[in-house]
Design a protein around this nucleic acid. Structure first.
Length: 457
RNA sequence: GGCGGUAUAGCCAAGUGGCUAAGGCGACGGUCUGCAAAACCGUUAUUCACCGGUUCGAGUCCGGUUGCCGCCUCCA
């Protein structure tokens, strides 16, 4: 039984899918105005862990992660640099997906972009106007927040307080300062699309409502994203979607905590960002994953490079134990139920990855100990399977087996070179020892005029 | 000001009322070793921000205080 914290309920709840055996989830990706930083990837890894663990638990998961590729900031950036706004978007999307692949984040099933769903967005707005939730004002369309009685239920805010909040930008064309734009009229020089209300572009929140409904239906299981999206973004999405359908939008709302830098939220506007691309130049992807998973996804995290570096110790340890176990080739066997059980308990409890990692680490300790006593082949294969099963759910060390094979090959080359040197010095007793030793490992050496070759037999 | 979160060892971090407070990193001591690395063993929180309360029993529940963070404006 998986429990997850639902922001809407303010507590952990048992996960019950809307449709047996299936999980439909939508996670807000990024607004593609700037290169992805480590905070963005924390959200992506969080979504990835949910997807992987649900799949491991037998669910079929449909994951949608959007890219908002048109908004004020992107336009501003485009006007500033002269680069076409579409180009900015596609460049950043490319970098994001490349980072994401390197970190072994499973691809979402869909990565919809706002500008490719203008049709759906407009249809959505039309419905909101028809139902009286939205009004047109000088080429803009606004959502009339006062018409939606549930407004504030996600973020725990109430309208009166929001109205008092002076920080909401007053706009003469709005009826009420808290109303938000569904469609924005284009100013001269801005990108636009034709619409029933004149040339313009979608507002910020509408694309997520339109696209999530398009790909996942009117009601789906999980909606997620960073904690800063709770208000106003997700609150507004609820108002839009439930306004149109009259049905609950998402059943569970999952928000990941922030990654702060020097005690402050990592943010483009403050300028204190650490790019994923820069981190990956220095650290192994698995080290970065271990780092992100070492804190529960809802807890805030402070970024310090030393803490990332710290993870290298654990990384080496895990690598070492896998290497030790890889002496027995082959997979299969049974995994150790009791260990897996503890792992699942941790993950069932709102995806508690730090706890899950502690199960892995203490199991690693057991393996080292038992390996000293020459356990049988079956035990080793079972241990390997158990360990890889758990690591796989966390998306760790999935590429290692192939690497070890490569490492073995390099090792054999090293021995052959050593043997050649010995033969040149006529130290045949030692060189034969190498040949006999390798033969026992089913590796045969053939000496040819061009040098030594080897093959597995 | 309102809302939400958080406070556990040198650092990171579990702990969702009950045996001696997980796990990792680091540090120190030891075993092993030609040297080194790895591995292994041991040590490293009488105490969980503070003050009260509930309870046979609280890090865990309740009330209060303080610190830190986030949201309330674009933001993963």
């Amino acid at each position: 039984m998986i429990k997850l914290y639902n922001t809407l309920a303010g507590k952990k709840e048992e996960f019950k899918p809307l449709e047996e055996g299936k999980v439909r989830m939508y996670v807000c990706g990024l607004t593609v105005q700037d290169r992805p930083h480590i905070g963005h990837i924390r959200a992506a890894v969080t979504a990835d862990i949910l997807k992987r663990y649900f799949e491991y638990s037998g669910y079929t998961v449909t994951l949608v992660t959007n890219f908002t590729d048109i908004d004020d900031k992107i336009i501003a950036k485009s006007q500033e640099t002269g680069e076409d706004f579409r180009k900015i978007g596609s460049r950043i999307i490319e970098e994001y997906l490349e980072n994401s692949d390197r970190l072994n984040i499973k691809r979402a099933d869909y990565y919809p972009e706002a500008t490719k769903h203008i049709q759906e967005i407009q249809e959505f707005i039309v419905k909101l106007i028809e139902k009286g939730f939205a009004y047109v004002s000088e080429g803009n369309v606004y959502y009339d927040v006062s018409k939606f009685s549930g407004y504030g239920k996600l973020s725990g805010k109430n309208l009166d307080e929001l109205r008092v909040g002076a920080r909401v930008e007053p706009d003469e064309t709005k009826r009420n300062p808290v109303d938000f734009a569904l469609w924005k009229a284009a100013k001269p020089g801005e990108p636009w699309w034709e619409s029933p209300w004149g040339r313009g572009r979608p507002g910020w929140h509408i694309e997520c409502s339109a696209m999530s409904m398009h790909y996942l239906g009117e009601t789906f299981d999980i909606h997620g994203g960073g904690a800063d999206l709770i208000f106003p973004h997700h609150e507004n999405e609820i108002a839009q979607s439930e306004g149109v359908t009259g049905k609950p939008f998402a059943k569970y709302w999952v928000h990941n905590g922030f990654l702060n830098l020097s005690g402050e939220k990592m943010s483009k506007s403050i300028g204190n960002v650490v790019l994923v691309s820069d981190i990956l130049k220095i650290y192994e992807p698995d080290v970065v994953r271990l780092y992100l998973l070492s804190t529960h996804y809802r807890s805030p995290m402070d970024y310090y490079e030393e803490r990332l570096k710290e993870q290298e110790g654990g990384y080496q340890r895990l690598k070492q134990v896998l290497f030790l176990l890889s002496q027995e080739r082959g997979d299969g066997g049974e995994s150790e139920k009791e260990v897996i059980e503890r792992f699942r308990e941790a993950m069932d409890d709102d995806f508690n990855t730090p706890k899950a990692l502690s199960v892995i680490y203490s199991y690693t300790k057991d393996i080292f100990e038992i390996m000293k006593e020459n356990p049988g082949r079956l035990w080793i294969i079972s241990a390997k399977r158990t360990l890889k099963e758990m690591l796989g759910v966390l998306g760790l060390f999935e590429l290692e087996e192939a690497e070890y094979i490569k490492q073995d090959e390099e090792l054999i080359e090293l021995l052959l070179n050593l043997r050649s040197d010995l033969r040149e010095k006529n130290l045949f007793e030692l060189s034969d020892k190498i040949r006999d030793g390798l033969k026992k490992l089913n590796i045969e050496i053939e000496d040819t005029q061009e040098g030594s070759r080897w093959k597995k037999v």
